[in-house]
Amino acid sequence: MDWEEVREECIRTGEFITISKKDVQEFPSFFEETNMGLSKGELKQFRDNRPTQSLHIHEFPDYYVAHVDLFNPKFHPVAHGILDTPGIALTLVGGAISVYFLTKAIKKYDLVPMKYEHRDQL
Results as ranks from 00 to 15, higher is better:
residue 19 I to P: 00
residue 23 D to R: 06
residue 44 K to W: 09
residue 81 G to M: 09
residue 82 I to V: 15
residue 38 L to W: 14
residue 26 E to I: 11
residue 72 N to C: 03
residue 29 S to D: 15
residue 105 A to T: 05
residue 108 K to Q: 15
residue 75 F to G: 04
residue 120 D to Y: 13
residue 63 Y to N: 07
residue 42 E to L: 14
residue 91 T to F: 11
residue 59 E to M: 02
residue 98 S to W: 14
residue 101 F to N: 10
residue 6 V to P: 05
residue 31 F to S: 03
residue 65 V to K: 04
residue 70 L to S: 14
residue 117 E to N: 04
residue 87 G to V: 07
residue 24 V to L: 08
residue 96 A to M: 04
residue 51 P to E: 06
residue 95 G to I: 00
residue 23 D to W: 04
residue 2 D to R: 05
residue 104 K to S: 14
residue 5 E to V: 11
residue 46 F to K: 03
residue 88 I to N: 07
residue 58 H to M: 09
residue 38 L to Y: 12
residue 25 Q to Y: 13
residue 71 F to C: 08
residue 56 H to W: 00
residue 40 K to A: 08
residue 108 K to Y: 12
residue 92 L to G: 10
residue 101 F to P: 06
residue 84 D to R: 03
residue 91 T to N: 10
residue 84 D to P: 05
residue 29 S to A: 13
residue 112 V to I: 09
residue 109 Y to Q: 09
residue 39 S to W: 05
residue 35 N to E: 12
residue 26 E to R: 13
residue 84 D to M: 03
residue 72 N to R: 03
residue 82 I to Y: 11
residue 45 Q to W: 10
residue 100 Y to D: 02
residue 83 L to M: 06
residue 110 D to I: 06
residue 70 L to Y: 09
residue 87 G to H: 06
residue 7 R to T: 12
residue 7 R to K: 15
residue 48 D to H: 01
residue 36 M to T: 13
residue 22 K to G: 08
residue 59 E to I: 04
residue 48 D to W: 00
residue 63 Y to W: 08
residue 113 P to L: 06
residue 102 L to S: 10
residue 84 D to H: 04
residue 81 G to C: 07
residue 104 K to V: 02
residue 60 F to N: 08
residue 20 S to P: 10
residue 59 E to H: 03
residue 100 Y to L: 05
residue 16 F to H: 15
residue 16 F to C: 15
residue 41 G to D: 00
residue 119 R to M: 09
residue 84 D to C: 06
residue 40 K to F: 08
residue 121 Q to P: 06
residue 62 D to E: 11
residue 43 L to H: 05
residue 16 F to P: 10
residue 67 H to N: 15
residue 22 K to M: 09
residue 13 T to W: 07
residue 103 T to H: 12
residue 37 G to F: 03
residue 121 Q to F: 14
residue 45 Q to E: 14
residue 56 H to Y: 01
residue 72 N to V: 03
residue 101 F to W: 14
residue 6 V to N: 05
residue 76 H to W: 00
residue 9 E to M: 07
residue 86 P to H: 02
residue 114 M to C: 07
residue 38 L to F: 15
residue 116 Y to P: 02
residue 52 T to M: 11
residue 30 F to T: 13
residue 80 H to Q: 01
residue 82 I to M: 13
residue 51 P to F: 02
residue 18 T to C: 14
residue 7 R to L: 15
residue 46 F to Y: 12
residue 96 A to I: 04
residue 106 I to H: 14
residue 66 A to W: 01
residue 74 K to Y: 04
residue 22 K to I: 15
residue 102 L to G: 09
residue 61 P to Y: 05
residue 89 A to C: 13
residue 8 E to V: 11
residue 21 K to T: 05
residue 11 I to V: 15
residue 88 I to Q: 08
residue 94 G to I: 10
residue 44 K to E: 08
residue 102 L to R: 09
residue 87 G to Q: 10
residue 7 R to C: 12
residue 117 E to Y: 01
residue 47 R to M: 07
residue 7 R to F: 10
residue 18 T to Y: 13
residue 31 F to P: 02
residue 72 N to M: 04
residue 57 I to A: 02
residue 60 F to K: 07
